[in-house]
Design a protein around this nucleic acid. Structure first.
Lengths: 344, 344
DNA sequence: TTGTAAGCGTTATCAC
DNA sequence: GTGATAACGCTTACAA
């Protein structure tokens, strides 16, 4: 590989002058600059970014750790951060945390040990206190899920309000026996939504029935089992609130054989094309990614400045048909927009 | 940050010995090793990976450039490579190429200038000759789409056979007027599938009708327009082959108002839950990712060795209902498996 | 305006 | 078995 020394030799200047020219330093004689530029071009100089990065002491890279990269929600976040990074001459390293909570710390610390410009994380464990040792060196921003046992920036959706909205929507459609479906209330996202669900029931003076809470719906088998348990309950539910998109997608097959009205937290591709089309709480992953990425850049650029730590983004309800399954006299509205799969 | 010199001072040895201990070199007296290990632990030594990487001259990172990270097909590839990378102590940098062909080279070269261990790419342009300058330093593996104007490893699905299979399947269901839907035959993936489609027609002595080829179906609007054009044709089609998952997803809304039988190249989440469930050619993005990632590792580990450049992976047909829309007397088979959205 | 020297943290070389 | 020294390619500090 041809380095600055080679260019310097060809242009008959010192390596430092080549550095100056390459980095646009103004204190170079036009004459010299021209010679150096010619040499740069002739040798097709490409800087050794490993050396530059080493010298700078920090890598122009934003790390992203999410539970599941294939989930379009997290995929969109990564994509949005990626675009922002590219615009700022940086790149992104992406890690899939999977679902083994015990591995989170190892994976994340291996990311952090790379002297990144910043880290964006949607954690899967209940304790990110291990981050405390890193945050002074590397800005960390939480997305979708708030930090546990460590102070850090976060951009999360309004889980409570969204769940309240979704549950209330079912109540307004005349339902009183409304089930809650989730994977695990272990993660704050789900527990917040659970709280929102209960708050909506309470606000409408509907008694909460623990028998209507079904967890473990992380795949199709689990969702079918959960649904079976629910319909076996004495005083079976007439409606169901699914607390996240993954559950909802897992639920879809079982739903086909059911007459439950449904609202769900989180839109997903094709949700509007199912029968019935699913009424959902819509989030904005692209915005989340943009805000989180921008925060990393801001923190890295102005280390001193103060920022709002906790940021809650509003959500909205997209009404489709699934909320009125047992409410058939109402006109179906036309399908509302859904996140489309598209590039760019 | 505490470095090897600090550890060395504490353990009263040289930095080199610390390096030896830390890297498990056997030529260290047990006595010394113990002292050093204690010091390492006491100072909580974390190596400066920037320095290590700089010294090594190459970054333990696999680059991935795909058209669209949110597309579950590419997302799965990235995820599979990521797992492999983690298992080998590496990470992945991911870039979304978007759909601006002109930017591909800039984006990819900015990746390559980082001295990666290797690059996995699903290109969007027609010319990757710019890679020639890099391949001697960095192994490059193409996925999903073969290289253009540059020799390189590739792992692609059997586009021709898959399209042939899908088209033939419609023919076997009694269709003679079969349309081809795509975004652009510009990319080899689609043109290969187009060829497979035509070959199937020819094999069954069905005349090819150019009026039944509809392109530009890259989003819902485009797909609806394409479908409208097709149904306006004299001797309108009774069936349609959609040449990629993106088109198919875009087509779904329009399909609801149509009686076309459909087969499609590429499975996607919820394809089995639509009405009708879409019969698809199934690919295996996880396998693609594993093979491509392994090839990068192999090439990096054994630079001399020779490998098979062109690798074509078999595809299979998953029969659902959409292929028999105008063939209603046949029994619908039960839904076949689909790539589920799941972590881990 | 330009060049020299030093150093970023790690590891390879080669003495001891 | 252990350590001094140099080197990776670049940039900062300082000198000329």
């Amino acid at each position: 590989m041809t380095g600055m020394r080679d260019v310097a030799a060809l242009a008959k200047v010192s390596a430092k002058t080549v550095s100056r020219v390459f980095n646009g330093d103004s204190h170079v004689a036009p004459e010299t600059r021209k010679r150096v530029e010619a040499a740069l071009r002739e040798l097709n100089y490409v800087p050794n970014s490993l050396a530059t990065t080493f010298r700078a002491g920090r890598s122009p890279v934003i790390g992203i750790a999410v539970p599941d990269l294939v989930d379009p929600f997290f995929g969109s976040i990564a994509k949005a951060v990626g675009r922002l990074a590219t615009e700022n001459g940086m790149s992104i390293v992406v890690t899939d945390l999977g679902d083994d909570q015990a591995r989170e710390q190892i994976i994340v610390e291996s990311l952090l040990s790379q002297s990144l410009t910043g880290l964006i994380i949607a954690p899967i464990s209940h304790d990110q206190s291990y981050l405390a040792a890193w945050t002074s060196r590397t800005p960390v921003v939480f997305v979708d899920r708030p930090p546990n046992r460590v102070p850090a920036d976060s951009f999360v959706e309004d889980d409570h309000a969204g769940a309240h909205l979704a549950t209330e929507h079912l109540i307004e459609h005349g339902h009183q026996r409304i089930a809650f479906l989730g994977d695990t209330t272990d993660i704050p996202t789900t527990s917040n939504r659970y709280a929102g669900y209960r708050a909506a029931l309470a606000a409408h003076h509907i008694d909460f029935d623990p028998a209507l809470v079904a967890l473990g719906a992380k795949d199709r088998v689990g969702a079918a089992a959960a649904l079976a348990r629910l319909t076996a309950v004495h005083g079976r539910p007439t409606a169901l609130f699914s607390s996240n998109a993954r559950c909802t997608m897992a639920l879809v097959p079982a739903l086909a054989h059911s007459d439950l009205a449904v609202t769900a937290f989180g839109d997903f591709p094709m949700a509007d094309m199912l029968s019935p089309a699913i009424t959902v709480i819509d989030q904005d992953p692209i915005l989340v990614g943009q805000l989180a990425g921008q925060r990393i850049i801001d923190r890295a650029t102005h280390p001193g400045r103060r920022y709002r730590r906790r940021n809650v983004l509003p959500v909205s309800l997209i009404e489709r048909q699934s909320c009125r399954v047992t409410d058939p006299d109402t006109q179906p509205s036309r399908p509302a927009p859904v996140h489309e799969r598209k590039a760019g």
